[in-house]
Computed example of a mutant assay.
Amino acid sequence: MNFKEILQESSLTEKARMLAVSSEESVAWLNALPASSLGNLLEDDTLRISVGPRMGAPVCAPHICRCSATVDVYGSHALSCRYSAGRHSRHSVLNKSLSRALVTCQSHAIIEPNAVLRDDIRTRPDGMTLVRSKE
């Protein structure tokens, strides 16, 4: 049985998983050397939860999320849940990584400063595009 035949007989979730993991870019993170000085040394649970979805393996016990959604053994709900701790940690890790890259290039970097928008001093620019006007 070839890949196309397997895809045709798979559920939508399985098709999405197999297409995602078969893309050329999806394996790039597996080639990174684990080094704590670079911030890419994964703890055991983090590695298990990272590899599990690639293999279609269960990563958690079924339960009800605090947003009232049902979480299956594959835990994919956590990738999109607004209450997911993983979502926030991935966001923070990406911000810190970009900040380190900018500092390495001798550029000033402030991670999500408050009061970027004048009308709301508590708002942070998460996911917001800011355009500087030409004056």
Rank of each mutant, 00 (worst) to 15 (best):
L41I: 01
L41A: 10
L41R: 13
L42T: 01
L42M: 08
L42V: 02
E43K: 07
E43C: 09
E43N: 04
D44W: 05
D44M: 05
D44G: 06
D45G: 08
D45L: 08
T46V: 15
L47T: 05
L47Q: 09
L47M: 14
R48S: 09
R48D: 11
R48N: 14
R48C: 10
R48A: 14
R48I: 11
I49T: 11
I49D: 08
I49G: 07
S50K: 03
S50Q: 03
V51T: 06
V51D: 07
G52N: 00
G52K: 00
G52W: 01
G52I: 00
P53F: 00
P53G: 00
P53K: 01
P53R: 01
R54M: 15
R54P: 04
R54K: 08
R54Q: 10
G56E: 02
G56F: 04
G56V: 04
G56M: 07
A57P: 01
A57Y: 07
A57K: 10
A57H: 08
A57G: 01
P58H: 01
P58T: 03
V59H: 02
V59L: 03
V59D: 04
C60Y: 03
C60K: 05
A61C: 09
P62S: 09
P62E: 13
H63M: 12
H63S: 09
H63P: 06
H63E: 10
I64W: 02
I64G: 07
C65M: 01
C65L: 05
C65T: 05
R66G: 11
R66C: 14
R66H: 13
R66Y: 11
C67E: 05
C67I: 11
C67A: 11
C67W: 08
C67S: 11
S68H: 12
S68C: 09
S68N: 12
S68P: 05
A69L: 11
A69F: 03
T70R: 13
V71Q: 03
D72Y: 02
D72C: 06
D72W: 02
D72A: 02
D72S: 09
